[in-house]
C-alpha cells in the first residue's frame, strides 16, 4: 500500500502560486521564489520524473539484467496483452480491490462515528484503533502469518476452539480463505487511517445542519443519508482514491503471507511485475507492465474523481 503524499501537497501549492498572480512582484522576488522552489523541483525531477522517464524508455526495449538491451518498440506491450499470467494477476488485483475497498470504507466510517463524540473514552479508542497504522505493513504481515499458521498460530487455535475450522485446517491452502486472512490483516492494519480521515470530515460538518434536519423531523438514517454522506463527499473521495490506489498496488501482504499461493492464485499485478523483473530478469517487460498498471491506476482514479466531484458545491 504505497501512496504518495505528493498529490496531497499539490493543491495548496498550486493555489499559492495562483494567488501571487498580478500582484506585481519584482523580478528579484520572482527569482528568490524560484530559488525557494528549486530544491523541491530538483527532488521531484530526480526521484519521480527521471525514474518515470527511464521506466518508459526501458519498456520499449528488451532489457535483461545483464547484457545489452535492444529496442523492440511495442513488443513488450503486445506480449503483455496476451500474457495469461499478467492478466490473471490483474484480475486478482481487481478482485482484491473490489472486496477490500468497501470493507475498509464501512469499518472506517463505523469507527469514525463511534469515536466522533470526542470525549475521553472516545479519544482512547481512537488511539487504539489507529495504533496498527503505525506498524509497518511487512511486520504486520509476518505477525498475522504467524498468528494464523495452522497448528501453531494463536488465532488459528482460537478459530479451531470456537469451531470455525477443523484441527487439520490450513487457512492458506484455499484461495478464499487465504484472501480472507489477508483482508483481515489489511483491515486491522489500515482501518485506523480511514477512520481518522473520515472523522476529520465528519467534524467539519456543522452541527447546525444536522440539528435543522432533526427539527424538520428527519430520522437518524435520513440525516445520515441526506445530510452527512453528501457533505462528506470530498472526504469520501479522498479515502476511496487512497484505498483503491493502495489496493491496486498491493504487494507486500501477498508476497509475505500467501507467497502468491495456493497455486499462484493470489499473485497481484505488482507481484507479477516483481517476478518478471527480478526473478526472470526481464526488466524491460517489467517496465512495460508497470506502465500499463500506471495507466490503469490513472484511469480508475480519474473515474472516481469524476463520480465523486462535488457538483453542487457552492
Amino acid at each position: 500500500m504505497s501512496t504518495s503524499t505528493a498529490s496531497l501537497n499539490q493543491k495548496p501549492l498550486a493555489r499559492g502560486i495562483r494567488s501571487t498572480r498580478g500582484t506585481g512582484l519584482s523580478t528579484q522576488r520572482k527569482i528568490l521564489g524560484a530559488l525557494f522552489a528549486l530544491p523541491t523541483v530538483v527532488m521531484i525531477a530526480t526521484f519521480f520524473l527521471v525514474p518515470l522517464g527511464m521506466t518508459f524508455w526501458m519498456s520499449f526495449n528488451r532489457w535483461p539484467l545483464l547484457g545489452k538491451h535492444k529496442w523492440i518498440g511495442l513488443e513488450n506491450y503486445s506480449t503483455a496483452l496476451s500474457d495469461s499470467n499478467f492478466l490473471q494477476a490483474l484480475k486478482f488485483t481487481l478482485e482484491y480491490t473490489v472486496i477490500i475497498t468497501p470493507i475498509l470504507l464501512v469499518f472506517g466510517f463505523g469507527l469514525a462515528v463511534l469515536v466522533r463524540r470526542g470525549d475521553r473514552p472516545a479519544r482512547f479508542f481512537q488511539s487504539v484503533y489507529f495504533m496498527p497504522v503505525a506498524i509497518g505493513l511487512a511486520s504486520a504481515s509476518f505477525l498475522w502469518l504467524f498468528m494464523t499458521q495452522s497448528q501453531i498460530g494463536p488465532l488459528w487455535d482460537l478459530m479451531r476452539r470456537i469451531g470455525l475450522i477443523s484441527a487439520t485446517s490450513n487457512l492458506f491452502a484455499g484461495h478464499w480463505s487465504s484472501l480472507m486472512v489477508v483482508n483481515a490483516m489489511v483491515t486491522w492494519k489500515v482501518v485506523g487511517l480511514q477512520m481518522l480521515l473520515l472523522l476529520s470530515g465528519l467534524q467539519s460538518i456543522p452541527d447546525e445542519v444536522s440539528e435543522a434536519a432533526r427539527v424538520d423531523g428527519a430520522s437518524g438514517w435520513q440525516r445520515l443519508w441526506y445530510i452527512t454522506v453528501p457533505l462528506l463527499r470530498p472526504t469520501l473521495a479522498l479515502v476511496l482514491v487512497f484505498s483503491v490506489a493502495g489496493s491496486l498496488l498491493a504487494f507486500d501482504q501477498f508476497y509475505i503471507m500467501t507467497s502468491g499461493g495456493p497455486s499462484n492464485s493470489t499473485i497481484t499485478a505488482v507481484y507479477a511485475i516483481y517476478r518478471n523483473s527480478f526473478i526472470q530478469f526481464k526488466l524491460g517487460y517489467g517496465a512495460a507492465l508497470s506502465v500499463l498498471l500506471m495507466v490503469i491506476l490513472a484511469i480508475v482514479s480519474a473515474i472516481q474523481m469524476l463520480l465523486l466531484r462535488n457538483t453542487d458545491h457552492t
Binding site: F47, V50, P51, T55, W63, L249, I273, F278, S290
Partner: peptide, 16 residues
Amino acid sequence: VVAVATTFGLGLLAAG
C-alpha cells in the same frame, strides 16, 4: 524475507 518493490521504482532500482 522482504523485498519491497514499488511499481514505479523499477527504473530506479535497476539503474542505480
